[in-house]
Design a protein around this nucleic acid. Structure first.
Lengths: 330, 330
DNA sequence: GTGAAAGCGCTAACAG
DNA sequence: CTGTTAGCGCTTTCAC
């Protein structure tokens, strides 16, 4: 592959001149410009991003750390991240931390090795070690934490107000006459989950409903998890069910369908996220919408802003959302 | 961020020694190793991938060029690519060429600039200019074309035998008594589509059914495209419908549902791809399965193999598939 | 076993 | 306007 030197030689100028043209410097005689352009063309020259990055100290690359595997639940966020990043001239690495986050540290280190300009940390699971590490490197690499509640760490955060929104959902169901509202939460150790759960408690409180531990189940963030939790919960005869994510709710819905539970007549159901799949379930899933695409875009924008002003105080961007009432709420 | 030099100084050795330790060279006295490791630890040292890449001439990075936007249709392939690449120590850039491939050249160039080790070119649309470019750079960067029929280009290719599989689908419908089998193909200029379409013709031929142009519609690869095509086709009163992709079939199915067409009684439907969403449609979509996850994994494996033996003759890997009969075929 | 020196491809002063 | 020079952080001979 040809180098800047080859171009210079062929054009009969110095590397410097070529370099200047590469970076759009206008202080070049038109005839020189032409010669150099011709040489680049002839050699099919593409500058070496390494060498550039090394000098410029910027890679125009960001990395996203995702929890678990790719699945329908994260696709919209990813699409938002991707398109926003690309529009700003950044390319994106996507990494799954793998089940129970086993690759998390390995990837974090790999991102640093590659000197990405920014890291989007998007794994609900609270991993103190990772967060400490991120805080440490955040002097050199911009970091934005998505949808994870930070206790004290000095990092930017973009997230949805899960507490307020879940509270709304509970109130909505109570106002429709539900009295035994069950809740499927994520496993412990996930902050966003804990927060949403607090919203559930708030809602019960606001409507004067008693809290009953037996109406709450924790589950893995998968459809199977949702189905199992639904199965256990039905012994308590709830008249409504809220799940911490749509995937959980969809799993529950699936289980209901297979076991003769009529939604919404017997149980009303509300999910969280508003993934496109909600439109495909029968009945269509009511949910708490958090515009995932926008979440992704906002996170990237925050990241870019952080890069250009590293000294600014870190803060949390709280995104709104809303109830989307479809068929599972009657 | 600290450099190899900082480590060397702190450990009281030379850069060379540190470098040797980084690359696992054993010719180091244990006590030196210990000192250096301690220094690395203390400085939180992570080598600079640029500088390494520049010397080693390898980035351990691959790039995937996707058609259009992220959508449910590509997610499984991406998941396969991602996980296989990561398992082999590679990170992956994902780029959407955008509507009508407007960013294709820009991204291709950007990948070269970043000196990725391999490119997965996965956009059905036949773009001669891009293919020529890919062929040219394939001396330096491994290239694998996915699911695109190559006419003469000297590039590796991994794809599914769309022709044989579509023929099977036609035969299957004919054997169920269908006589007016309609087909929704992709827009012209997409090779995989043309190939699948040939399979449609083969099938008609095999079962002695006459070809009727009015039973064929071309559409964009979206649900809306599928719905519109279905709408136009219904005037011809078909008794079966095959679509070139699941997304098209799902769009048609949706239109049928809204317009009182009973599937499978009035029209039987078969898609292509077997994306997970098929399980969510009502009725559940019968389809031609191509194990997308494996497709992605296979492509990455081919890419890695190509990297280690650049001189080998390029060839095409033809993956099998099968009919998955669910509810839309009765 | 260890280090000095050269160089990967590029950019950025600084002269001319 | 253009070229000379000196690195960026790392690896790699080749001596010691």
């Amino acid at each position: 592959m040809s180098t800047i030197y080859d171009v210079a030689r062929l054009a009969g100028v110095s590397k410097t001149t070529v370099s200047k043209i590469l970076s759009g410097n206008k202080n070049v005689r038109p005839s020189t410009l032409e010669k150099v352009n011709a040489a680049m063309q002839a050699l099919d020259y593409v500058p070496n991003g390494f060498a550039q990055g090394m000098r410029r100290n910027a890679t125009h690359t960001i990395a996203v750390l995702l929890p678990e595997q790719y699945n329908y639940g994260y696709m919209e966020i990813l699409a938002g991240v991707e398109s926003c990043a690309n529009r700003s001239g950044y390319m994106t690495f996507v990494c799954s931390t793998g089940k129970d986050g086993r690759y998390e540290e390995k990837y974090l280190r790999e991102m640093v090795r590659r000197r990405v300009d920014g890291i989007l940390y998007f794994t609900y699971r609270r991993n103190t070690k990772s967060l400490n590490y991120l805080e440490r490197i955040s002097r050199d690499i911009a970091v934005v934490v998505m949808d994870n509640v930070l206790k004290g760490e000095r990092l930017d955060c973009v997230r949805v107000d899960g507490q307020a929104l879940t509270k709304q959902a509970v109130c909505c169901l109570a106002d429709k006459g539900c009295r035994r509202i069950a809740y499927i939460r994520g496993l412990h150790g996930y902050d966003a989950t804990a927060e949403r759960f607090r919203g559930y408690l708030d809602g019960l409180d606001a409507r004067g409903l008693a809290f009953d531990v037996r109406l709450v189940e924790a589950a893995e963030f998968t459809m199977e998890g949702g189905a199992q939790a639904a199965c256990r919960l039905m012994r308590q005869k709830p008249d409504a069910l809220i799940a911490a994510t749509d995937m959980l709710a969809l799993g529950a819905l699936d289980w209901f369908g297979k076991n003769g539970v009529n939604v919404p007549r017997d149980v009303r159901v509300i999910g969280f996220d508003d993934i496109p799949l909600c439109l495909w379930s029968r009945p269509r899933l009511s949910t708490i919408s958090q515009n995932q695409r926008m979440l992704g875009e906002t996170a990237v924008k925050r990241l870019l802003a952080r890069m250009s002003s590293p000294e600014e105080e870190p803060f949390t961007l709280l995104l709104g959302g809303g109830l989307v009432l479809r068929e599972t709420t009657g």
